[in-house]
Computed example of a mutant assay.
Amino acid sequence: MIDHARDLRSVDEATERLLAAAAGLDNVTVAEPSRLPGWSRGHVLAHLSRNADAIGNVLAGLPMYASAEARDADIERDAHRTLAVQLADVRESAARFRERAALPADWSRTVTLRNGVTDTAARIPFRRWVEIELHHVDLGIGYELDDLSAEFTEREIGFLRERFSADPAVAGVTGPPAVLLGWLSGRGDGAGLTVPGGGALPALPPL
């Protein structure tokens, strides 16, 4: 059973870890490339801020983003700010999300995310937790997939397997949890994973 209140606490803890780690950057290193193609660390931090507001929109019954173009434009607009401004935005947007999540609500209701994707409101805090943890890794500042908690890794692997359930071959792939999570999330080539019967790893659709 999903415990949204517990996941919200995990979101808070993950946010504080990310902020503490990112505080070790400076105005030069925040502008350097992240591990995500075409994005600097500033892009990653800007995305996390705008995603917090977008997730809050979802809980409020509003469109997650005005449009795909507006989402991309907002990230590009905010990506080149100073480190101090970036960190303040991450913290303040996280607080806005937490305030929205604290309002009385029916957590069993269905909500709509990007591209018409629907989910229960109770799983939205976990989705936010995923954004923070995986993008912390993407910053490339010493936080790795192996550093993620066993609970988080297991749950995200299950979430992604469910997402890729149209291909039954994905469910049979096994290996070290961090490697499996890296492959499923597009953050690793899957070297060291095992496919039933041998052969190549199945191709994953875009996330």
Rank of each mutant, 00 (worst) to 15 (best):
V58H: 00
D78V: 02
L148G: 02
G42I: 09
V137G: 06
G116P: 04
G24D: 08
D189T: 14
D78R: 15
V111T: 01
I124L: 13
T82M: 07
L48D: 01
E32S: 12
R77F: 03
E13R: 15
S185R: 09
L201K: 10
G182V: 09
W129Q: 14
H135D: 02
V195H: 06
I2W: 09
R161Q: 12
I75K: 00
L145T: 00
M64D: 01
Y65Q: 01
V111Y: 00
L207K: 13
L145M: 07
R114E: 07
I75D: 00
D53L: 15
R6N: 07
S49A: 15
L193P: 04
M64E: 12
L18W: 02
P206V: 07
A150Q: 12
R155G: 14
L193M: 03
E32M: 13
R187L: 07
A121N: 01
R91C: 12
V117D: 00
T174K: 12
G24L: 12
A66T: 13
A203K: 12
F97G: 04
G38Y: 02
A70D: 13
G199A: 08
D167C: 06
T15A: 14
L145W: 06
G197S: 08
L193Q: 05
H47W: 01
L36D: 06
E144I: 09
L184K: 04
W39K: 09
V137M: 01
R50T: 15
G182Q: 08
G172A: 05
P206R: 13
T174E: 11
E76F: 06
M1F: 06
H136E: 06
R109Q: 12
L48S: 06
I55P: 01
R127N: 11
P176I: 10
S149A: 14
L204F: 05
L59E: 02
G175S: 04
R96C: 06
L45S: 04
V90D: 08
A84C: 08
G190C: 08
F152R: 05
I55F: 15
A66L: 12
L134F: 02
L181Y: 03
A52T: 08
L87P: 02
V170C: 05
E13P: 05
S93R: 13
Y65R: 00
T153P: 01
V195F: 09
V195W: 01
H43E: 04
L193W: 08
G142C: 09
A169I: 02
L103S: 12
E92V: 10
S34N: 04
I141T: 14
A60M: 13
F97D: 01
F159C: 03
V58I: 13
L204S: 10
T174I: 04
L160N: 01
D146F: 05
G24K: 11
A5L: 11
R41H: 10
L8A: 05
L201N: 09
G190A: 08
D72H: 10
W183I: 11
T112K: 01
G197M: 09
A46T: 11
